[in-house]
């Protein structure tokens, strides 16, 4: 039976969270996008900033966001638990979000997933199965932190992971020879004048 747990009790709680001055400046900039008194509208952006600063969202961070935006904490918990982009548990340095929706699955996401699961150690890499990332034309797709890695198979996936292990940042986008979603190996049509 599927058990639903919005408040994972096994998650380590963090006693204190506050924004660094750099992040605080960004928070203020986000709040300034909205008319006075409507600061709560910035909640998603501010939660994202908190997550970027801390790596994931401990409850202390959500409470701090609630305080800054003058919202009831529960309203912030609602938002943070609604969007899968918010991580409520500690994550590895690189979060591998593997798309397994039909197009990616048909194009071999199972093998990609296998490679990712193999790499996941919770420190450097964490894996998450996600639904369509909107890059089906380059299936299979894996989102690693803010970037999409596309047209993967097991081998190219491992190559990407190895690069991360070495501390490099492999080039995002298609991992085969094509430019974005243009044909592999160069143009096939519209070649003439």
């Amino acid at each position: 039976m599927a058990m639903i747990t919005a408040d994972p009790k096994d998650v380590p709680q963090v006693a204190h969270f506050s924004f660094t001055p750099e992040y605080m400046a960004k928070v203020e900039e986000q709040i300034a996008h909205y008319p006075p008194g409507r600061q709560a509208s910035a909640v998603i952006a501010v939660l994202d900033l908190a997550q970027r600063q801390h790596g994931w969202l401990p409850r202390a961070a959500m409470n701090e966001v609630a305080r800054i935006l003058d919202m009831a904490p529960i309203r912030v918990y609602e938002v943070a638990t609604f969007y899968t982009m918010f991580q409520l548990r500690p994550k590895g340095k690189y979060l591998l979000q593997v798309c397994t929706t039909t197009p990616c699955w048909l194009r071999g996401s199972d093998a990609v997933m296998k490679a990712c699961q193999h790499a996941a150690d919770g420190e450097l890499f964490s894996v998450q199965e996600v639904e369509c990332l909107g890059g089906c034309v380059n299936a299979p797709v894996v989102q690693i932190n803010d970037d999409f890695y596309e047209d993967l198979d097991e081998a190219s996936m491992n190559k990407v992971l190895d690069a991360f292990r070495r501390g490099e940042t492999p080039k995002p986008g298609p991992q085969v020879d094509r430019q974005t979603s243009a044909p592999e190996g160069g143009l096939t049509t519209l070649k003439g004048e």
Binding site: A2, I4, A6, D7, R59, A72, P73, I74, R75, Y77, E78, T81, F82
Partner: peptide, 25 residues
Amino acid sequence: TEVAGVEQLGATGRGESMEVTTYVE
């Protein structure tokens, strides 16, 4: 939220994971 004026209850998660809760017990 509206009548009692204690914003403690909410709905967390979504879809099949939606729960009515105070989140923090």
